[in-house]
Design a protein around this nucleic acid. Structure first.
Lengths: 131, 131
DNA sequence: GCTTGACCTTCCCATAATAGGAAGCGCCAC
DNA sequence: GTGGCGCTTCCTATTATGGGAAGGTCAAGC
């Protein structure tokens, strides 16, 4: 299987597959023509990576998860700790974004949004809430 | 006022002030010694930028907001549209992160997290939810 | 056997926002 | 007049991804 097929089978672009190899996340065999060669097991790893990325794990965490996945004797405790840390990070980020959205929505509700120039949004940005 | 004072007065690092100038967000006069010189109005702009950044506006949006802010004859409609678009983007992002957090938290609840190797988190990442 | 087109290779560049650091000069206080 | 701080520019790194150029390879069709 060449890289294009592996890309289609895993949902990861060929570009990113090469990148993941370059940063040591995965490895790939080479054929006589120097083309990268992938087996089903490699595709499974790529899919694993994609699922982890879909859950927002940074590549550094993906690397550790992948190592744990490959290791049949791993302790599930480490996986759980990694996952819970990540959950906390995700929730913190989501909360922060929601807070931003809410304060901005609050501002927009007081802006009539017509052709007139006065605008509480700009006024607020212009120095009101100092910190 | 030199860049260090402007940085302290605005809460934006000198590094970033130079960067904002380099990308055309702001401009600064120069003194006889080629040092950047800032007036109170410049500090006000920097503070405006920081507030907008605090609300999560990308610099591209900040640039437009800043142009609107400088323009006394602007229509508040454009500001409001920009702000509402950004609110929508923030909320979408927050929702996406919350969804990630929730599915991951769900997985962790089924992982006993001890020294045993079996782990539903890894199993799930390993191919269960295909898409 | 040669062309064509799809695929592969490597290497460079770009994004967004911020930070760290090096090398060199200016300036003020002591 | 010197020490130390501040300023200058330029280079590098981060995170994850994509775009593109220049060139090699392979299979199909004529």
């Amino acid at each position: 299987m060449n890289i294009g097929d592996a890309a289609r089978a895993s949902g990861i672009s060929a570009k990113m597959i090469r990148h993941y190899e370059a940063i040591g996340l995965i490895s790939a065999g080479r054929g006589a023509n120097q083309y990268r060669v992938y087996a089903q097991a490699d595709v499974a790893e790529l899919r694993f990576i994609r699922h982890a990325r879909d859950l927002g794990f940074p590549l550094q965490d993906v690397k550790r998860l992948l190592d744990l996945w490959r290791n049949r004797a791993r302790a599930s405790a480490e996986v759980k700790r990694l996952a819970l840390d990540h959950v906390a990070a995700l929730e913190a980020k989501a909360k922060s974004l929601s807070a931003m959205a809410e304060s901005l929505r609050h501002l927009t509700e007081h802006c009539h949004g017509d052709e007139r120039p006065d605008c509480p949004i700009l006024e607020e940005l212009g120095g009101a809430f100092s910190s």
